[in-house]
């Protein structure tokens, strides 16, 4: 075995930079990361950039322009392991709301010269363009999960990422169910754990930024939520949020809209 430290590249696509900031916010662990990995490309952290190939590429953001669609292919070619970081990269993020509407009409309303814009009609997750080895959800991601994935890669083991819903995290931290206790619409029962149940712990419902769980019952949850709606269409808006383009949430919102018609 050589003593070569694995190289890391961190890329940004269409996104707010919040997930990259979550890496930089790991103040206590950052030195350990820098000790374990050779940071070769991470513009948010350093101007120094070294050419690929890289052992690990972490990609933030969704694909929203023709240029990005090309660039991600090149990054894939340069990377042994590619991790999609955050809900923009795993589901399209908040900008994928354009997928449900006419992006051109918005561009014409907002810009004087929309003809100068080069954009795709949709904002799509990385996995729709290139094979992705691992997806970390969240808006932003949870730093513990980022560390867990890096640690798993470095130590050649499977990462320990939860398959259960946010409800279990609420109960473990002693948070009282906002849905049952206050009648607040919450999609925590259908949302992947990992955030630590931040929103319910602060008295609001979960809006699903960690994406759908693999095993849940969206039909039943929709029945419950439509009865709790404080304004018409609230359930659709809950599902069609940050993770709204994730397949099961997308289908749920589509179905509700079809029923409403």
């Amino acid at each position: 075995m050589t003593h070569h430290k694995p190289t890391l590249a961190v890329y940004k696509f269409s996104s707010c930079d919040g997930c990259q900031l979550s890496i930089l916010n790991m103040e206590d662990e950052l030195l350990d990361i820098a000790g374990a990995l050779d940071i070769a490309y991470f513009l948010e952290a350093t101007r120094a950039e070294r050419p690929g190939p890289y052992d690990i590429a972490i990609v933030e953001g969704s694909i929203t322009t023709p240029h990005e669609a090309e660039r991600i292919k090149e990054i894939r070619r340069q990377s042994k392991v590619l991790i999609a970081l955050g809900t923009c990269a795993t589901a399209g993020g908040i900008q994928s709301l354009r997928n449900f509407t006419d992006a051109k009409a918005y561009a014409q309303t907002v810009y004087d010269h929309p003809e100068f814009l080069h954009y795709l009609d949709t904002a799509t997750p990385i996995a729709e363009h290139v094979p992705v080895d691992m997806e970390l959800w969240g808006c932003p991601v949870n730093k513990g999960q980022v560390l867990e994935v890096i640690s798993a890669l470095l130590n050649n083991r499977r990462p320990n990422l939860p398959a259960y819903s946010v409800c279990l995290e609420c109960k473990r931290r002693g948070t009282i169910c906002v849905l049952v206790d206050k009648g607040i619409p919450c999609i925590g029962p259908a949302t992947q754990a990992g955030c630590g149940a931040i929103c319910p712990a602060n008295g609001r419902g979960c809006y699903g930024c960690f994406g759908p769980t693999r095993s849940t019952n969206l039909d039943s949850l929709t029945n419950i939520l439509t009865k709790l709606e404080r304004t018409p269409g609230e359930t659709v808006r809950l599902f069609r949020g940050i993770s709204g383009y994730a397949p099961t949430f997308r289908e749920t919102a589509d179905m509700l809209l079809k029923e409403a018609k």
């Binding site: 259960y164 819903s165 409800c167 169910c177 849940t216 019952n217 039943s220 949850l221």
Partner: peptide, 10 residues
């Protein structure tokens, strides 16, 4: 029952 249960663990 499975048609109603959310499997949320509550």
């Amino acid at each position: 029952i499975g048609e109603r249960c959310l499997s949320c663990a509550n």
